[in-house]
Design a protein around this nucleic acid. Structure first.
Lengths: 215, 215
DNA sequence: GTCTATAAGATGATAGAC
DNA sequence: GTCTATCATCTTATAGAC
């Protein structure tokens, strides 16, 4: 990968840092906690990454790049809304199992007191939303929904909501499953509006004009 | 308030604990950090609450009760979807300023390693979703949307999404504002479906039957 | 590049004076 | 009920041997 000589210990630390964030949370992500999981000496973190925050930063960026790369092809193949929902379902389950969403949730809640982690969190959200946005934009093209849907904003809303749902799942798994089911059910609404075609489009347009005046 | 004799120090610690979670996050919520903010001795936390976790637990439950109580009347007065969106907008801004959503986000991300905090997080989500659910249920009654909308699940999804958006806002304020705008814009879609009345209802019903078969 | 040892400080929690 | 003082442990980070 270009310049970066990939030392074995470095790689172990990157993997262990992400895993620690996923499984033990930000509270457990201490130098000793990470090094212990990696099976290496604690001092090596400071040799390779200067600070714990910078290790976490590098680990999260790496994990996000890898995760997004994995979905690039599937995202590119999506052209319809039902297709997007199907990919979204798979993505949700896979990412839950791997723990990337949990990692991002921990990263974001720790970002408040740590500028370095804040940078990593911003990067993670930027990369994810960029990917989601391109798909949403493509799928909405030609749909009556394009009248009211802003793909850039929706991509951000969806990504952020995933973070919240992940945290919720850690606290009340049944409740979170219930929430996800109800969101999926709402997909039917989208399909119906799509099927209604010109009728929906006209109704949305006139409604928007009225709202614009009120504003 | 019933049995609990409200000691002044106890009250100061409860307030300081919630504030610390809001402003310094879970990482800053140490015994010394909280006691310092309350202007009392650190050892008093253990005298009054036995452990730091139990102080945070009590503080969050208290803050959530207070916050929900504040909206009970406004929620009860809502009967229409536009009315619900208006209350939601006000709620979002007020709670952002007060910091209760941030507090809950920190609580939930710390809940993974701490059973006591997990209990507090569960309680907070339960209280909030119960309140939201009753409004959503009432507002959807009679609407074609009731065909696809599950108020219990949606209330959970909305509450969880608020948490995620709060964390996102801490990392990228512009992006979060963009996300919220796009969600508000989506409210128009809901109004249109409502206006379509029987047409939308029929379309949703037949679509649901088709989907049921596919499943 | 990796180790041991250690500094310098923060943390949860307790004992005991007042 | 509140304080001081303290313990044992954990933290980040560094120095220096190998």
């Amino acid at each position: 990968m270009g310049t970066g000589a990939m030392n074995a210990t470095r790689a172990k630390l990157l993997a262990a840092a992400a895993d620690t964030l996923r499984e033990d949370g930000a509270a457990g992500a201490s130098a000793r906690g990470i090094a212990g999981r990696a099976g290496v000496n604690q001092a090596l973190i400071f040799y390779h990454f200067k600070t714990v925050s910078e290790l976490l930063d590098a680990a999260c960026r790496h994990a996000v790049d890898e995760a997004v790369e994995h979905y690039r092809n599937q995202f590119a193949a999506v052209t319809s809304l039902p297709g997007l929902l199907a990919v979204g379902r798979e993505l949700h389950q896979r990412e839950r199992a791997i723990g990337n969403v949990a990692m991002m949730a921990q990263l974001m809640s720790a970002a408040g007191n740590d500028p370095v982690l804040a940078g990593a969190a911003r990067y993670a959200m930027r990369v994810w939303t960029a990917e989601v946005e391109s798909v949403v934009e493509r799928v909405l093209r030609g749909s009556p929904l394009a009248e009211v849907a802003d793909s850039a904003g929706l991509a951000r809303a969806v990504s952020a909501s995933f973070i919240g749902l992940e945290l919720y799942e850690g606290v009340d798994a049944d409740g979170a499953a219930h929430a996800l089911d109800s969101l999926e059910r709402l997909g039917v609404l989208v399909e119906v509006v799509n099927d209604l075609g010109p009728i929906a489009r006209r109704a949305l347009r006139s409604k928007l004009k009225g709202a614009a005046v009120v504003r």
